[in-house]
Computed example of a mutant assay.
Amino acid sequence: MEKKFIVRPKNDDEKVIMTIRIEKELQEKYDDLAGKSNRSRNELVCMALRYALENLEFLE
């Protein structure tokens, strides 16, 4: 039986590149969390942004 190495295109249709400026301390905390969680800093920031949107409450 022949085994093939199959590579499919990565589906990044729904993702965009966005540049933001954050405080050094915040970046260091995300780096630490990334190391502890075995997730990328980008994944953690996306999770935090989604959580913030889902739990957002505007006060008058």
Rank of each mutant, 00 (worst) to 15 (best):
E2P: 15
E2Q: 13
E2M: 10
K3H: 14
K3W: 15
K4L: 15
F5P: 02
I6N: 07
V7L: 12
V7H: 10
V7W: 07
V7R: 14
V7Y: 07
R8I: 02
R8H: 09
R8P: 04
R8K: 11
P9Y: 11
P9M: 08
K10M: 13
K10V: 11
K10E: 12
N11I: 08
D12L: 13
D12V: 08
D12C: 10
D12T: 13
D13Y: 04
D13V: 03
D13Q: 10
E14I: 02
K15E: 09
K15V: 06
K15M: 10
V16R: 10
V16H: 10
M18T: 06
M18E: 09
T19E: 06
I20E: 12
I20D: 12
I20W: 10
R21S: 09
I22Y: 03
E23R: 07
E23K: 05
E23A: 07
K24R: 09
K24D: 11
E25D: 15
L26F: 11
L26G: 04
Q27C: 03
Q27A: 04
E28F: 05
E28P: 03
K29F: 00
Y30L: 14
D31C: 10
D31R: 15
D32M: 09
A34G: 15
G35A: 13
G35T: 14
G35R: 15
K36Q: 14
R39G: 08
R41A: 07
R41K: 12
R41G: 04
R41I: 08
N42Y: 01
N42A: 12
N42D: 10
N42L: 02
E43V: 02
E43C: 01
E43H: 01
L44Q: 06
V45S: 02
V45F: 08
V45W: 05
V45I: 12
C46T: 05
C46F: 01
C46D: 08
M47E: 11
A48T: 06
A48I: 01
A48R: 07
L49I: 09
L49Q: 00
Y51T: 01
Y51S: 01
Y51V: 00
Y51A: 01
L53E: 11
L53K: 07
E54R: 00
E54L: 07
N55S: 03
N55I: 01
N55V: 01
E57C: 00
E57N: 02
E57P: 00
F58W: 08
F58Y: 10
F58N: 00
L59D: 05
L59K: 00
